[in-house]
C-alpha cells in the first residue's frame, strides 16, 4: 500500500506514530450537512441535464403535435358526394 512509507523507516517510530491515530471530533450536524450537499448537487445536475435537453424535447413534441394535427385534418375530410 505504501512501499515508501514509514514502515521500517528509521525516522518514524515514537512519537511520530501518534500522528496515525490523530482525529478531530466532527460537529453533530456533519453528516446531515453532507447529505444536504449531496442532494442539492444531484438535484442541480438533474435540472441542468433537463434544461440542456429541453429544447430538443420541446421540438420533438411540437413535431409530433403537428404530425397528429395534419393526420387529423386528412381523416376528417368528408368524401365528396
Amino acid at each position: 500500500m505504501n512501499p515508501e512509507g514509514n514502515s521500517g523507516d528509521p525516522d518514524a517510530g515514537e512519537p511520530i506514530e501518534i500522528l496515525k491515530e490523530l482525529e478531530w471530533e466532527t460537529s453533530e450536524r456533519f453528516q446531515a450537512q453532507v447529505r444536504g450537499k449531496i442532494y442539492r448537487r444531484a438535484a442541480t445536475s438533474q435540472v441542468v441535464t433537463y434544461s440542456w435537453n429541453l429544447p430538443k424535447v420541446a421540438l420533438l413534441e411540437f413535431a409530433r403535435l403537428l404530425s397528429h394535427l395534419f393526420q387529423s385534418l386528412g381523416t376528417n375530410k368528408e368524401p365528396k358526394q
Partner: peptide
C-alpha cells in the same frame, strides 16, 4: 508533507 506522510500514509512519490 509530514501530515501527508505520517497521517495519510501516502508514498514519497
Amino acid at each position: 508533507p509530514l501530515v501527508m506522510c505520517d497521517m495519510d500514509e501516502l508514498s514519497y512519490d
